[in-house]
Simulated assay, not measured.
Amino acid sequence: MAWIQDKELTFWERLGSRVIRAGPMPRHIAFIMDGNRRFAEKLKMKTLEGHSHGFAKLTELTGWCLKLGIREVTVYAFSIENFKRSKEEVDGLMELARKMFTRLLEEQITLEKHGLCVRMPGDLTLLPQDIQELIAKIELATSQYNLCFLNICLAYTSRDEINHAVQELAWGVEQGLLQPSDVSESLIDKCLYTYKSPHPDILIRTSGEVRLSDFLLWQTSYTSLAFQPALWPEYSFWNLWKAILWYQVNHSALQKARDVYLAERKWQQLENDKAQVTEKLKQEGSPLRDPQARQLLLQDCRAKREERIQDFLQALERKRGDFLEKLVSASA
């Protein structure tokens, strides 16, 4: 099965598409693909067959999103908690991943045609070595594409992601690239597994469950949440349509809340900068009320911080790139 099902929409689906595209459209939608096992149980099939049907639904969903102009999709494919399932199921899922990722590498022409960049956020070191190598090949092979993006979260939980980001910041301080005062919410955001993606506009969970299960907790403060009863393999174009419509109904309120938050964060950063300047002037014995000295020092403080942050982020990107390159070399 191809990774992108490019099937034509029905007449009613095309009509529905035109209706919702008249309103504000999401750029990025995230999915908790829940219900594969219940689907298998419902149809009296093996659990792994349910997961295979779930993969088929993902390829269909990717096609819908491309037709609707949604540039980015993130899916929760395998949680770190899923390693606690039976050995038979975990081994079966890993084998399914091998087959699907191998197929993905064979579809370079299709991926290039759609400009699809594939990323796999998560702690890849928890996965079997050969799957790590396949992931590295996929990410490097599609890294130059930028028309649309598919993020498949593997060996992922949000708590692990935030912990990993803190470790990256600690590494930056240890290497002398950062000062402790450089750490901020925006810098933590740039150290997450999902650092290249905007925060999702919509998060959808299927199967009727109404919890986030440790998925994108950091990224979804101002995201429209949709909990839908359909089991993931049974998910339809109209389920997606309803979630987008609900997002449009709440778009203004979400945007307003996001704008207020960003303004508060900007104000807080300014106050922190002013406090640093005041402390520095005290240490130097300079007049605290000299506005020109304060302004020059404030500008210098910001410029040096930005330079340190950019150097740190470049070093972090090289570190991540080296990790993928080593995996590819190991498979040669």
Rank of each mutant, 00 (worst) to 15 (best):
L192I: 08
W3D: 01
R258T: 11
L104Q: 08
K190I: 05
Y222Q: 00
S158D: 15
R302F: 03
S286M: 05
R308W: 04
A230E: 13
R159T: 15
A165C: 05
S52E: 15
H53Q: 12
Q299M: 10
K266M: 05
T194R: 00
D322Y: 05
S52W: 13
S158T: 13
Q292M: 02
R318F: 06
L203S: 13
P24K: 11
W3F: 13
K196Q: 14
Y156K: 09
L288R: 03
H28I: 08
D91L: 14
Q144Y: 07
N250S: 11
A77F: 06
Q228P: 01
I70R: 04
S331E: 11
T142N: 03
I138C: 03
I244H: 03
Q310I: 09
Y247Q: 05
G285R: 08
S331F: 10
V173N: 13
L288G: 01
H28T: 08
L93G: 00
Q283P: 03
A332L: 09
S224D: 14
F78N: 04
N36D: 06
D123H: 06
T125A: 05
W232H: 00
K42V: 10
M25S: 11
T157A: 07
I204E: 03
A243R: 09
E13W: 07
C148G: 02
L177R: 08
E139W: 00
L245R: 14
R37V: 07
F312L: 10
I188F: 13
L327V: 05
R289K: 09
F39L: 06
A22G: 13
L212M: 15
V19M: 14
I202Y: 11
L240D: 10
E112Y: 02
L313C: 12
R289S: 09
R289A: 07
L316G: 10
L313S: 10
K319R: 14
L216M: 13
R14F: 10
E306D: 14
G122P: 00
E107V: 01
E271K: 15
A155Q: 02
M100L: 12
L298V: 06
K99N: 14
F227P: 12
P229Y: 07
E95G: 01
Q132H: 00
A253T: 15
S221G: 13
Q144L: 09
E325N: 07
K113I: 03
V210R: 13
V73N: 03
R37K: 15
T110H: 03
L61N: 02
S17N: 04
E49Q: 15
E81I: 08
G54Q: 02
H164Q: 15
Q175S: 08
L147A: 02
R265A: 13
Q310F: 08
L61T: 11
A315I: 06
N272G: 12
S186G: 07
G50P: 05
I4G: 01
K87I: 11
T223F: 05
I309W: 00
K7Y: 07
K196G: 12
T47C: 00
L105V: 07
K67I: 01
L177C: 05
E279V: 04
L104G: 07
F78C: 07
V90N: 12
V277W: 11
E185I: 13
L66M: 07
W171C: 13
Q175G: 02
G122H: 01
